[in-house]
């Protein structure tokens, strides 16, 4: 008997539709988020992550409605990210039925926001999303830096130090995306995940780069991730959640079948 490693399909949403870009371009439509969430939940997804990738002010109301509709039909944990900047944003999403919120840019702008948020709502619902890019050259010791705004803006912040700080501020979980790998389908940045997982006591969700089922298994076995997140391999019917779980089970990983 052991805790299962989690498989989390991620819905990147724009104006109420699921989309998935490759390196933030070439955005393809992948359906209605409520319908997609229900399908994944029925197929055995362990959680759903909903990322509002536009998060412009006008689309905010759409997102809240969508989150509320998902939460009324899907009874597994739901994380909502994108545009979470104030305590009120968190309250709004929790009231709509989200179980956790993912904070990204707002944490970089003001790390104390994470402390305030976790003190107010509890660490269990505060996920810090980290977009990491490798900045060390080949042959040098690994080093990754935080980037914001979809990977466009460097911050000069070291990823591992940042994750430790965020956990000190009360982050209950880290959603760690490799911007080098996102959309490439060549697998997770395993060194990044392992370094992060060993640095902190909270769970790490590996994200960015999944192209096949073995990548998911590698994320756990080599990247020491507690959960693996993927989008496009599920959205476009390449693999089902069940196939992913069966593959992970065949590699000796504890999963919820």
């Amino acid at each position: 008997m052991a805790l299962a490693k989690r498989i989390i399909p991620c819905l990147d949403c724009d104006k109420g539709r699921v989309v998935k870009g490759v390196k933030f371009v070439d955005i393809r439509d992948a359906g209605d988020p409520v319908e997609v969430s229900r399908r994944y939940s029925d197929a055995g997804a362990d959680e759903i992550t909903f990322l509002d990738i536009t998060a412009s002010h006008e689309d905010r109301a759409t997102t809240v409605d969508t989150v509320s509709a998902i939460a009324g039909q899907v009874f597994i944990p739901l994380t909502v990210g994108g545009g979470i900047r104030m305590l009120d944003d968190i309250r709004t999403m929790l009231n709509a039925g989200a179980d956790k919120v993912a904070i990204n840019t707002a944490a970089v702008d003001n790390p104390e926001f994470v402390r305030e948020a976790s003190e107010r709502f509890g660490s269990q619902c505060i996920v810090v999303a980290v977009d990491a890019k490798q900045v060390s050259a080949k042959g040098e010791p690994h080093k990754w830096e935080i980037f914001t705004h979809g990977g466009r803006n460097p911050t000069g912040i070291d990823v591992i130090e940042w994750i430790e700080r965020m956990v000190d501020c009360g982050a209950g979980e880290i959603l760690l995306t490799s911007m080098d790998r996102d959309g490439t389908k060549i697998g997770f940045d395993l060194a990044l995940n392992k370094a992060a997982s060993n640095a902190v006591r909270v769970p790490i969700i590996a994200s960015g780069g999944v192209g096949n089922l073995e990548h998911l298994a590698e994320g756990v076995l080599l990247g020491e991730a507690d959960a693996v997140l993927a989008a496009s391999i599920f959205h476009f019917g390449e693999f089902t959640i069940q196939e992913a779980k069966q593959h992970m089970a065949s590699r000796g990983i504890e999963v919820r079948l």
Binding site: M1, A2, L3, A4, K5, R6, D46, S123, Q124, G172, E173, R201, V202, P203, D226, A227, R256
Partner: peptide
């Protein structure tokens, strides 16, 4: 505890987060 481990000595994350079997 900050140094929670399973039977094989593997470190366990805290919080206990996710799906576990209930006997």
């Amino acid at each position: 505890g900050d140094d929670l481990r399973d039977e094989s000595g593997q470190r366990l994350k805290v919080p206990h987060m996710g799906w576990n079997e209930v006997k």
